[in-house]
Design a protein around this nucleic acid. Structure first.
Lengths: 337, 337
DNA sequence: TTGTATGCGTTATCAC
DNA sequence: GTGATAACGCATACAA
């Protein structure tokens, strides 16, 4: 078993409180004799003393831990977000405890319960689903709390998310600007917030340009590769298929590309597309992929900022931050003349 | 503040110990009156009681937490590994606490210290660098401990890693089998274990086939995209460049592809390659990428197994598991005739 | 400048 | 069946 304060106390002949005071080193808070200081430090070193964080946390009722729940840590969006947030919190001496909800509301709920029981000082949740009732309960605990990625308007809580609506809009407007009129969309799970926003952005962009919305051009199911594959095939089977398609994110792109290849079509000669999310390999495909990139780093920094603010001023007004994604033009969209 | 045992005790008139016993429900361990049981459960429900995990952990000297340190959580290999391990540990009612070492030994050391101070029940480290001295100290604490990915032979500790040597070998042997004799390698940071193993596999495969090792064909720096880019350019500038190249992993592939494209070369007509690691987009590039896939899921499952075993039998013999990667033949290697 | 006493919330031991 | 009490390791208010 590792050394405790009392072991140092016994070894040096001082009391536990003196040892504790020396080791915590509030500069000038308590006057300690020079020699005492030195001897205790030496003894601590010799014994390889490490404070027991559990005992300390229990005593202080503070953990300097921020809990975080993400739908799927293996997705780059979230793992990168976690990394950024962890890195910045470190500067303020906060650690992060991450739970993977595995895209499952029940698991998410358990994760939150556990984090709360662990008495984390703050909580960041990237909600899995459409439901927000279980999140409402959190707001009643008064714990500094933040949602990310998906934002529930009715939920009275700080949040930082990407402007999915506008991201989709600028994507589709780019397509329109290149002369496309027949524009399809393949998107993810209906009812989830980012997805809905993107679809709405798609529709509004069309409407604003005076383009009628064609039901057949709107396909959806999930953000998975396989869905992208199936829906793209379906899209291409249409008797009057679109000349351009907007992929609403995730791995749809990957599946759709496969479908396009199977049909022996060339991008962007036969079909143009643009995707939400900018994958690392976007520049390496042939052609390179025109995309709407989410400002993940910015989102992480903002989250840390909001969290620290909420901890410092529990009664500050609720802030819902909407970050702007960025259009990155590459070669997957043809200019129609 | 949330409800404690004592709040339930006061509300029901029973003692804290009775309340504790009811709420912990060791079936049949303690006899409790039916009515008592019910009333306490009701009160707990009403008060929204959640056990304070910190207090419990302090008392029990057990956390049911496994600490894990990875070099870079934003890399898919690690985030996926974390996910798998978390998922399987959940089945045994263990949680995982993840720290990102940010590819930095100092940060890694701090993470380990912190995890130890948090009194996690077990520790899994995917070591950042070449140094293993700071890991030796862990073995002295007697905490169930496991290294992953990079394995230190001299370090007396359980480990699970991929057989990097053999993975490289089968990759290069595939190249040779397709008739290539001039085979280059672009690899990562010299001195890191997986990298060294892969280079050795490359060299042994050549030697076994009676092919002389050409110094100019061996380029290295890091697993980053930019390195791949630079080194591939350098490789192609050679007066007698190789007909095939083995990329030892990471993002080298991405950068190398860019270099190849800039030279207006076609894969695999002008140059063939195979890469360690099988990225999600491997099938989507043109041509699709022949790769050596690491069995990440298997590694995670094995890690959990070893960890549970070590916790159950602290004195079991040290086990160093080597998992076999798998060759996935696609279209980036030409058959020379 | 240092020591004593107390409590954080829980579980386990022992007594009744 | 149930309750009183101690202990986990630490930090602080108060005493000296």
């Amino acid at each position: 078993m590792s050394a405790r304060l009392i072991d140092i106390a016994r070894k040096t002949g001082f009391s536990v409180s003196t040892v504790s005071r020396v080791l915590n080193q509030r500069p000038g808070k308590y006057p300690i004799h020079e020699k005492t200081h030195k001897r205790i430090l030496e003894a601590a070193e010799e014994l390889g003393y490490r404070p027991n964080i559990i005992a300390r946390n229990l005593r202080l009722k503070k953990t300097r831990e921020i809990g975080m729940v993400v739908p799927d840590i293996s997705k780059r969006f979230f793992s990168f977000l976690v990394k950024i947030i962890a890195k910045h919190l470190r500067n303020y001496d906060y650690k992060i405890i991450v739970y993977d909800a595995d895209e499952n509301t029940t698991v998410e709920q358990e994760a939150i319960t556990d984090l709360l029981a662990k008495k984390v000082d703050g909580l960041i949740v990237c909600p899995v689903g459409v439901e927000s009732r279980h999140l409402e309960k959190i707001t009643q605990t008064n714990i500094p709390f933040l949602t990310m990625d998906r934002c529930f308007e009715k939920l009275d809580v700080d949040s930082v998310s990407v402007d999915n609506y506008n991201g989709a809009r600028i994507a589709v407007e780019h397509l329109i600007g290149q002369g496309h009129r027949k524009i399809g969309v393949i998107h993810g799970l209906p009812g989830t917030w980012p997805n809905e926003m993107r679809v709405r952005g798609y529709e509004d962009a069309l409407q604003q340009a005076g383009i009628a919305i064609e039901k057949n051009y709107n396909l959806c199911d999930s953000f998975g590769t396989f869905n992208g594959y199936l829906e793209m095939h379906q899209m291409l089977r249409l008797e009057d298929p679109p000349t351009a398609v907007f992929f609403a994110g995730g791995y749809i792109l990957l599946g759709a590309l496969k479908a396009i290849r199977e049909k022996n079509l060339t991008v962007p000669r036969h079909i143009s597309f643009i995707t939400f999310d900018d994958p690392t390999y976007a520049t390496q495909l042939t052609p390179s992929i025109t995309a709407v990139a989410q400002p993940i780093e910015e989102a992480g920094v903002m989250a840390v900022k909001l969290m620290l603010r909420r901890m410092a001023e529990p009664d500050a007004s609720i802030e819902k931050v909407l970050l702007q994604p960025q259009l990155i033009v590459r070669d997957s969209v043809a200019k129609l003349v």
